[in-house]
Nucleic acid binder design. Structure first.
Lengths: 232, 232
DNA sequence: GATTGACAAATAATGTACGATCTGAAAGTT
DNA sequence: AACTTTCAGATCGTACATTATTTGTCAATC
């Protein structure tokens, strides 16, 4: 019978050294969906996934339920789970929402920012520029710290959670993709302009800057997805 | 195209008499959390819930995982699930997000609206005014149809899903709460103005109208929550 | 005598196994 | 050809085993 061939196999021989390795069933499944290793609308059979993951069915079922809650799989009673397609539209949809949310978060930040906050932003930005996209992981971490400094203290926890989740998804999608030189330059420029607006207490300017930042990021990811799809 | 009435369990069954029958574990748990029948940060023990629901532990675990995915419970490894507090802040947070999203959806709708759409909106509005908040359930359904007509065809399915979920939560919270006369008048007025702006192709006016609509709705719910808390 | 630390028992979460029930589709019947 | 029956495959629910955490007790130390 035809089976899902693209899902990551359970680690065959290296047992117990890396324990779970931090990758739970949930994370592996989510990663497979986000990276398109399982086709859109493909059926996810619990028994099959369980044997593939090397566990029994129960953990798989619970992981699927969690993914259902997050909207990554669609479940119908007595008929199991299907993959929700993670395509360019999905990225576009997320980014469009962020284009609405992040400027709002940023406006608030401009209103409560302190001198030391700005200094910290500048310090992070210097680190980012010094690194110059040399290490994808480090850059991602610095960039996360940069934006987290702006959003973490916001009173609307729900909005911030949404941002965190969206960022997580986008990061998972774009991990491994190279960043074009053009996009690199734009990222640095957008960050610098953002800092300048914040320092000048230019609320609307900061909002516009972050809006462009999000939009550019989304466009870049979509372009990379297209290239990736074409060249395998 | 197949029927759009794909609403899961849209039938509001009010039979609380049968302990095991009727609604699913998931819905009962979610309802308990949203309505504050379980205290904030209270620990949710699977065995206890299972015996209370009259089932074994597995369905409860899966329901909890789904709720975790939706953000209603917080789970920590080997330490179980805790209730996420559903309070006034939560409502405010949701409404603030909707104040950002719904105007964007509305702007798009103004751009694609047809004559028959406007006629349908007006027909629904007439029904709403004729009903005049006589039946909470019917009003809620009509209001849902009203806004669904505007949003359902939007290309950003993710944003629409978010709206649906938020609306669902707010509806569950405010169910049973009476609507003040003042709020009733405002709702009708806001709908009328919204329709007028749409007919006149006044994009920004429509966006402002829906923004006020959402904001007023949120404020009303929060006020009712305060009253409810005070008087038991 | 009160506090702290270790150790044991209880409690609860997590994982495994299996039977019951439902679905989908291919067989067989009119 | 349409309807019914049958059956394999998958989901869903129950029971149990395992593992981790919390709690309670008691002795040792300050």
């Amino acid at each position: 019978m035809s089976t899902i061939t693209n899902i990551r196999q359970a680690v065959p021989d290296r047992d117990d050294l890396a324990e779970d390795g931090g990758s739970s069933i949930y994370e592996r499944l989510r990663d497979d969906i986000i990276h398109g290793r399982v086709k859109a609308n493909e059926r996810l059979k619990v028994a099959e996934l369980a044997s593939r993951m090397g566990t029994s069915t129960n953990p798989v079922r619970e992981a699927l339920q969690q993914l259902r809650g997050e909207g990554f799989v669609i479940m119908t009673p007595n008929r199991g789970a299907r993959v929700r397609p993670i395509d360019e539209e999905f990225v576009r949809d997320i980014c469009e929402i962020e284009v609405l949310i992040e400027p709002a978060l940023t406006r608030w930040f401009v209103g409560i920012v302190t001198k030391s906050d700005i200094e910290e932003l500048e310090r992070l930005q210097e680190e980012i520029e010094a690194l110059n996209f040399g290490d994808e992981m480090k850059h991602s971490n610095l960039d996360l710290q940069f934006h987290r400094l702006m959003y973490d203290r916001h009173y609307n926890r729900h909005a911030v959670d949404l941002w965190v989740r969206h960022r997580h998804i986008l990061w998972a999608i774009s991990r491994g993709f190279p960043t074009s030189l053009s996009r690199q330059a734009n990222v640095l420029e957008e960050h610098r302009e953002l800092i300048a607006c914040i320092r000048n207490q230019d609320v609307e300017g900061a909002a516009r800057a972050i809006g462009r930042h999000v939009e550019g990021s989304g466009r870049h990811i979509i372009e990379r997805m297209r290239l990736d799809k074409r060249h395998g």
